[in-house]
Amino acid sequence: MTAFTLGVHNLPAAEVVLIKTLMRLFPATATFKWRFAETGPFDAVVTDATNASSEVPAGLARGVLKITRTDAATDADCITRPIRAEQLQEWLALQGELLRLVPRPSVRTESRAVTTQAGGTRFKLRRWPSAALLQNDPQRIRLATLLSRRALAAHELARISRLPAEQCQAFVDSLQQTGLIEVVRVEAAAAKRKPAPSAPVLARPLAGGLIDGIRRRFGL
């Protein structure tokens, strides 16, 4: 049996460390096989129910465990702080049983769904991605940087970065699955469009040549 994956979404760093540690300590058995994963989609995700921005994006995970304040747990998918090992383990065991009853959708299907949704939209970063997602890869860092500054569609990202469209789309998909990007409808973006706050000292013809010139200077 393949291990199920557990991820986290917008949890405080200390709780992420705690969950990672617990996941290493839980013994794997024939009926309990879970591992921690840095990037989604996950089989289940733990999120902070007290944070309004922690709504788990559609498609990120099939099961969601919410962490709440003390005595605020309201349902079976909710546990209270502090996170207790036995509660997490119990929830994962139950979740594992439920997941085994419902086949995992293929990655291909999920990917296509995201791509279709992306057709008429632009994306903008809500928050700088984790080091695990970027892997200190200069191309990923450049793509994330572009999205940190402007809402862009995947094809626009490819045009600016001069990277393959498929690579840009895959990167956008991975960001979307981890809830790190805001989806901006093109119509809304056009209605709101106003002159961009350009870097103050640059006239456009100068800027293009300057950027290329600096990149040549450093062999980029």
Partner: peptide, 25 residues
């Protein structure tokens, strides 16, 4: 250090691209 500088350049590119789109519109 070069990667830090390249990251600044990418931000400039994002600005410039948006300027072009604005003019096109």
């Amino acid at each position: 250090v070069v990667l830090l500088i390249d990251t600044l350049l990418a931000q400039l590119e994002a600005h410039l691209y948006e300027d072009e789109n604005h003019d096109d519109a």
